[in-house]
Design a protein around this nucleic acid. Sequence first.
RNA 1: GGCUCCAUCAUCUAAUGGUUAGGAUUCAAGGUUUUCAUCCUUGCCAUAGGGGUUCGAAUCCCCUUGGAGUCACCA
Length: 489
Amino acid sequence: MMIFRFLFYPFLTNDYLKYGTLFKRLIMVVTRFAPSPTGYLHIGGLRTALLCYLWARKNNGKFILRIEDTDQSRNSVEAAEAIVQAFKWLGLSHDGEIEYQSQRMDIYKRYIQKLLDDGKAYHCYMSKEELNELREEQMARKERAMYDGRYRDFTGTPPEGVEPVVRIKAPLNGSITVEDGVKGDVKFEVKDILDDFIIARADGSPTYNFVVAVDDALMGINTVIRGDDHLSNTPKQMVVYEALGFDIPKFYHVPMIHNKEGKKLSKRDGATDVMAYKEMGYTPEALLNFLVRLGWSHGDQEIFSMDEMMEHFDPKDINRSASIYNVEKLDWLSAHYIKNMSNTKLAELLEYFGLVLSSHDKREILLDVLKERAKTLQDLADLISEILTAPVVYDEKAVAKGFKGDAVEILHAFAEKLKSSENLHLPIDYHHVMEALVAEKEIGFGKIGQPLRIALMGKLSGPGLDAVMSIIGKEETLSRIESAIKANS
RNA sequence: GGCUCCAUCAUCUAAUGGUUAGGAUUCAAGGUUUUCAUCCUUGCCAUAGGGGUUCGAAUCCCCUUGGAGUCACCA
């Protein structure tokens, strides 16, 4: 028997793994992203959306987009549009039609009625004033503010002139355990967190914890990946699942993203709108790569393509602790992706920043030289215009440092040499001219480099001068030298 | 305040109970570059504190401290 096990053990585990993945495929993974309509896609929302997307796609499942607009339905369509736009920019997609909770009121009403009929929910005629009064009394006694269940078994005549709310009959004792894929089992005592919470307001509209549970169940969502600020809502939603006889999905509550102060990211922290990152010149690759590494990792790997994210991501590997949102790494990633992007792609993307390079004959040189230096597409665009337009101001300190001694004379000599040179195209051609001058005059490279740099760029930093001259051409080079001499001597 | 979660460099994170606590970003120094940036090399920097369990703890348990989230007829 021992020998049998020993021999077959590898095969057994192999089978187990095989059936494991097969089993996974049989139950299709359905995830969802369910934002409330704020008008734009929030950076924190994007992270959970990305994780839901990755997991659904990896498993050939579905990723559903649902707009949670039960209360503020005014601009939910615009909000959804903004989210879809952002998804489009990022290359994410959702399956099926966008679901609007505001259009599903009939469904919710039906399920509320069902609970009423089953005796699992009841009308409560307590007015808001009475409720507030009760709360204040409880607070004064340092008790937890909760509904006291006074209408739970009410059979008398309801008071006049009060539109009732509907409350669900929550368990009165015991505990509820959320089996969370990230946090582990989280146990809540009923007495600490539950009361008969409202599932329909006086005007008949359903409340959040009710509709979320109903929708998730009805839409077949079996994997809920969401922010851990929802963890304490989960027991309430489980009460609804229970009452309606629905299967409870697998929960993954991912930690919040914090700001530098260690608090939940808010509008005050600057760019929370995902599209603001597009405006700033970040690429989708960089942003997604940055976000996926917040709270998740795969060994020492830092750079992930979309395919690699999909290949390696598993929500069970998400960290338990919150992470701080730090743009330095995003900048590094962004620079990395720009450096490694093809010039064709870059030129395409730069059009969004008002730069049309298709007609420029030195486009390749220009982009090769500058993409090493840019953190964002906006940077790149700025760097390009900096070269393409002649300097209007000359940095004072630079002039003081570089435009002294016989600088003007050397510049003149260089200009003359340029004029008499033919067939100047590539950086190397201009380099030869500089070399010739340096040799002839028996000076260091810096002697011509510094004043020339000021003439061309207006300052002492920037890309190689031979490349700059090659890009702007002989005539423009001469013109800039002349202007610089005129302005600074 | 109640409940819940969390705790490794400044930041993002690795580490079957056995590593010299690893990588990346930032920062610093050096090299390359006539300059700046890139790039390369090197360096600085962490297991919150205290108890246990164990031959051995960043890892398991307890306490303390600190932080966060949440407590609506908002979502």
